[in-house]
Design a binder for these strands. Structure first.
Length: 123
RNA sequence: ACCGCUGGCUAUGCAGUCGCGGGGGAGGUGAAAACCCCUCGAGGAAAGUCCGGACACCACAGGGCGCGGGCGGUGGGUAACGCCCACCCGGGGAAACCCGCGGGAAAGUGCCACAGAAACACACGGCCGAUGGCGCGCCAACACGUGAGGCGCGCACAGGCAAAGGUGAAAGGGUGCGGUAAGAGCGCACCGGCGCUGCGGUGACGCGGCGGCCAGGCAAACCCCGCCCGGUGCAAGGCCAAGCAGGAUCGACGACCCGGCCCGGGGAGAUCCAGGUGGGCUGCGGGGCGAAAGCCCCGCCGGAGCCUAGGCCCGGCGAGAAGGAUGGCUGCACCCGACAGAAUCCGGCUUACAGGCCAGCUACGGAA
RNA sequence: GCCGCUAUCGUCUAGGGGACUAGGACGCCGCCCUCUCACGGCGGAAACCCGGGUUCGAAUCCCGGUAGCGGUG
């Protein structure tokens, strides 16, 4: 963790739309991962993350828990992330049970699986 | 108090490290950003969005009607409330205590299925035959005629009755005694209800006296009475920036707006289609001094009192995101941690909840 | 966030205090018809979102929950 970058995040609705529309997606039972390489002329802000957790996942407490677990798991895996990409992680309803049972570790395993699929193309 | 009841408090904690959001910054590298440092960072319900307000815009939010909506024992409290406190009444409990949408059914309308004779004012079966009627016998009367009147028995024709029976959620006071042809508040005693009245209480109401028995239930059915109520909601609203392309209809003979109607008023734009943008600041969470610890002022909430009724005293709180922060890891401790995440703010209500702590009250029974 | 609406068989629905034992259509199951299937005929199973309250009586009225859906920059 020598050069710890700032944890960038997506803040514009248009950013989300672009990642959904033009990014690559991979999914398993718990999560959907979208990845989109930003063009060079844009500022090199590094990796940015957006998280989407719908109300079907659970109440506010469960949704917050899922978001926090996803954020932590994502940045723990930052060495495997393609640089200057925008990522969006969508939590599926089953993810609430995963977080409750296995915590951040379980989420990290599920997320690493998706990154392994997307890795070759993104690199 | 082990099992009961009431009120209040608390809501895993500590240390290290990495990270996230807001605010500030003496000094250091910087033009700035950033690094770095300091500080603050979810709840008692933040929840459901059920009430009441504040605030904002609609006109300055006005008058009448009450179409419409809400509330409902009494007296206080409060900015206000459907909330809180005390009391009254009714119900439950052995008690502590708990529960109650708790005005009016003699203003009117409506409903009360099935059963039952009858569901608001009735008589199926039944009881009675005092009174009147009819029949028979006897007396009056020694015999004949007449047969008034009287007595007894019978019939159940007129009529009287609502106690006991059956139906039902409910048949209109209840129990007992008297009374009667049979009965009945018909009379009486007690109880219950109602009316009048005396006393006590601010009042709901309570206690007593007298009268008389007239009054089925449902108003979370319409309704009546009393009180209250403009609409929309921070995605309200204000400011700035960027961008596009206009067209149709209506309109000072008043479009449109002020929830409905009327009055009264504002008023130059209104509606629809097409096109463009979908960014920022503010509303939004107190201020001052200080590098910081901290101190002072301000505001809100809670508590016990004091006095010129507004303050004084003590304690606590003051988070403010905008794809939306409050978390990850490691270690230690214990009874192994419930319900649950701020979104304009405040006062309530309701609902969810593992436990732990404190104070007070009650003593029928069970266990020991 | 704010403001609303709805809930009845598997699905769409009727019913708005009383034999409602909740009706109908499609679907499902069984039997008949047919060589078989379809169509048709007969029969059957199957529901008032949950918990309280008012009432003699609640799917219906009232209160509180739950779930689903919609509007709003």
């Amino acid at each position: 963790m020598a050069d710890r970058k700032k944890r960038g995040r997506l803040s514009r609705s248009g950013d989300f739309d672009r990642v959904y529309r033009d990014g690559r997606s991979h999914a398993n039972r718990y999560l959907v991962l979208y990845a989109f390489p930003r063009a060079e002329q844009e500022g090199a802000d590094g990796v940015r993350l957006g998280i989407s957790v719908s109300r079907k996942v659970g109440g506010a407490v469960e949704r917050n828990a899922v978001k926090r677990a996803l954020r932590e798991a994502f940045w723990e895996l930052d060495e495997r992330l393609a640089p200057d990409h925008d990522f969006v992680i969508v939590a599926r309803p089953d993810s609430a049970g995963l977080v409750e049972r296995e915590g951040t570790k379980g989420v990290r395993v599920a997320l690493a699986e998706l990154l392994a699929e997307s890795g070759p193309q993104a690199a």
